[in-house]
């Protein structure tokens, strides 16, 4: 617990953390609000209250997925900044177990990613309810949990991947570039290339978009969750094992 508490102090005492979170959450909220208003104004007047509630949940979780890149970069910076400054040595002198340090960072960042998703989802949902009040939205249907879970796991996965890349490459620019290639460039290009579906179904970008119903289903939802879970855990484990070997 000491290590987790210390990593939380480290993260909260850097202004860049709050800038990244602020930019990520506010941009997502702003875009969600704009997008939700536009989408809702075009809804068929015959839409039921349950469909309206589902529509709001979807619109809000598009915002959550939009915030994943800033959070991923925060994950990267939380460790690459220590390597660049050399402070990582102080960290490892204080806590000789490198896996403990990395897992503590993962816990703190995972908590922040969940908090960020809630900071977007809850105000976004309340805003959507007021905009869509003419449809008398009910409580969201059961399928909404797929969207909520998909959005939340998506942002947590990207954050963990950012941390793992930062720990592996130890250089913020390199790690962030790889993160953007994996999360944005390849999924974007994959939509236009032959065989792109296969690539997209194993990378973490597409499954989150499928789960929040922004892309056609190319795999079962359970598979999409599994792929996201894989990318949240495996790169981090690889980073931990690689570190054990070096030192």
């Amino acid at each position: 617990m000491n290590t987790v508490a210390a990593e939380w102090i480290k993260l909260r005492t850097l202004r860049s953390t709050w800038w990244v979170l602020g930019v990520g959450v506010l941009t997502a909220l702003g875009l969600t609000a704009l997008g939700a208003s536009t989408v809702i104004s075009r809804w068929d007047p015959g839409r039921t209250g349950e469909q309206a509630a589902m529509g709001i949940v979807v619109a809000v979780h598009v915002g959550v997925v939009l915030a994943q890149l800033p959070l991923g970069m925060l994950g990267t910076m939380s460790i690459s900044g220590e390597y660049t400054s050399g402070m990582i040595h102080t960290t490892f002198v204080a806590t000789p177990s490198r896996s403990r340090v990395l897992l503590a960072k993962a816990s703190v960042l995972g908590g922040l990613a969940v908090a960020a998703s809630l900071l977007i989802a809850i105000p976004g949902y309340l805003y959507g309810l007021t905009v869509a009040s003419a449809f008398d939205p009910t409580l969201p249907p059961v399928e909404a949990w797929t969207v909520i879970g998909g959005g939340m796991l998506g942002i947590v996965t990207t954050t963990m991947l950012g941390l793992a890349l930062g720990a592996t490459f130890r250089n913020g620019v390199v790690a962030t570039s790889v993160l953007v290639v994996v999360m944005v460039l390849v999924p974007f290009a994959g939509r236009m290339l032959p065989g792109g579906e296969v690539v997209n179904s194993i990378l973490p970008g597409y499954p989150a978009l499928q789960l929040v119903e922004q892309m056609p289903d190319i795999m079962p939802d359970a598979a999409a969750f599994a792929v996201l879970g894989f990318w949240a855990v495996v790169p981090l484990l690889v980073a931990i094992l690689a570190d054990q070997r070096v030192a």
């Binding site: 000491n2 290590t3 508490a5 210390a6 990593e7 102090i9 480290k10 005492t13 850097l14 202004r15 860049s16 900044g81 220590e82 400054s85 050399g86 402070m87 040595h89 102080t90 960290t91 002198v93 204080a94 806590t95």
Partner: peptide
């Protein structure tokens, strides 16, 4: 231990640097 005194992240306050370090142990 004092290894490289300039190997600290510049964005934190001096007391905050000692706080996280104290917390680890």
């Amino acid at each position: 231990a004092l290894l490289d005194a300039s190997a600290v992240q510049g964005g934190r306050r001096a007391d905050q640097h000692l706080q996280w370090l104290a917390r680890t142990n």
